[in-house]
């Protein structure tokens, strides 16, 4: 294809733009990574390479008994929540994928459209959860989000791409609905089930707001809430610390200098690691367009 000079210039600039764009997007994460492994007292300046690499911060974070509770809570919420959520949504999507199932249209409204338009709001929801005795429980982090209209629609659309003749043939052979679902539909829908599981899992691993709003008991904190608490507390601490240093006209001594920043950076990296591990699989699914828009922002 012939290209004009202007288009060639545009292409070069476009490629350069995306190079700069990628670097800018990556810097915040690289910086945290560097902070989490750098114990050097001398600032590394603009280089993102640690001046004095060490795993000291990670040892400190992992040595702190206080993080294992929230860590286990998050793992529990993620595992139990994802399993139940996928089961419930995959099952609900099946009748809704069947055009001969009568309540179909009603269910689309009840499960998808009305929840999108109307909500009780923060306080009525809070009061219902309180009445149900769900405050200060781990279940409150996943129970309210188990059934997801959006996920049900995605799974339903996938089911609908399976030829109906398969279902009809199975019926003629005398198979029941449950058998058809478990032996024909589910095995054929592995890609969408895998994708929904991954996205639900990441969402639950990141659980923050419900744990903050409904659980005041620190033993029910999720990892994200614990992380937030550490960051905020440390901000206050380091501010006091700096003021003290200024008052006493002290400068930091040479050698290793552990900072609060390094500690929270290590904590952040720990919470990112599971996401990085599943990221290639996530990417496979959203790149194929299957999961577009499936997880709330």
């Amino acid at each position: 294809m012939n290209r004009t000079f202007g288009e060639k210039v545009f292409n070069v600039f476009n490629l350069l733009f995306f190079l700069v764009f990628s670097i800018i997007l990556l810097i915040p994460i690289l910086y945290i990574l560097q902070q989490s492994v750098d114990v050097g007292a001398v600032k590394s300046g603009l280089s993102l390479w640690p001046s004095d690499p060490s795993t000291a911060y990670y040892k400190m974070v992992l040595g702190d008994q206080g993080i294992y509770g929230p860590l286990l809570n998050s793992i529990y919420i993620t595992v139990v929540g994802t399993t139940l959520s996928v089961l419930i949504n995959a099952a609900a999507a099946y009748p809704m994928s069947r055009r001969d199932y009568k309540p179909n249209k009603f269910l689309v409204y009840y499960i998808v459209i009305i929840p999108m338009l109307f909500s009780g709001g923060q306080i009525p929801t809070f009061l219902v959860l309180k009445e149900l005795g769900l405050l200060n429980t781990l279940a409150v982090c996943f129970l309210p989000v188990l059934a997801s209209g959006w996920n049900i629609v995605l799974i339903r659309n996938y089911y609908r791409s399976i030829p109906e003749s398969l279902i009809e043939a199975a019926k003629i052979d005398g198979a029941g609905e449950f058998y058809i679902f478990g032996r024909i539909i589910l095995p054929l829908s592995k890609p969408v089930i895998a994708a929904i599981s991954l996205f639900t899992g990441v969402g639950l691993w990141n659980t923050f707001t419900p744990a903050l709003m409904y659980n005041s008991d620190p033993t029910k904190y999720t990892f994200a809430v614990k992380l937030r608490e550490m960051i905020v507390v440390q901000e206050d601490m380091s501010r006091q610390f700096e003021a003290m240093m200024q008052q006493m006209a002290l400068s930091s001594a040479s050698g290793q200098a552990m900072t609060n920043e390094g500690l929270s950076a290590a904590m952040m990296i720990i919470s990112i690691i599971p996401i990085i591990i599943v990221y290639p699989f996530l990417q496979k699914h959203f790149a194929s367009g299957l999961m577009v828009g499936s997880v709330k922002g």
């Binding site: 419930i88 949504n89 099952a91 609900a92 099946y94 009748p95 809704m96 309540p103 269910l107 009840y110 499960i111 929840p115 129970l143 309210p144 188990l146 059934a147 209209g149 049900i152 609905e177 449950f178 679902f181």
Partner: peptide, 9 residues
């Protein structure tokens, strides 16, 4: 099959 989702919602 659709009942659990309906109950939860």
């Amino acid at each position: 099959m659709v009942l659990p989702a309906v109950i939860l919602l």
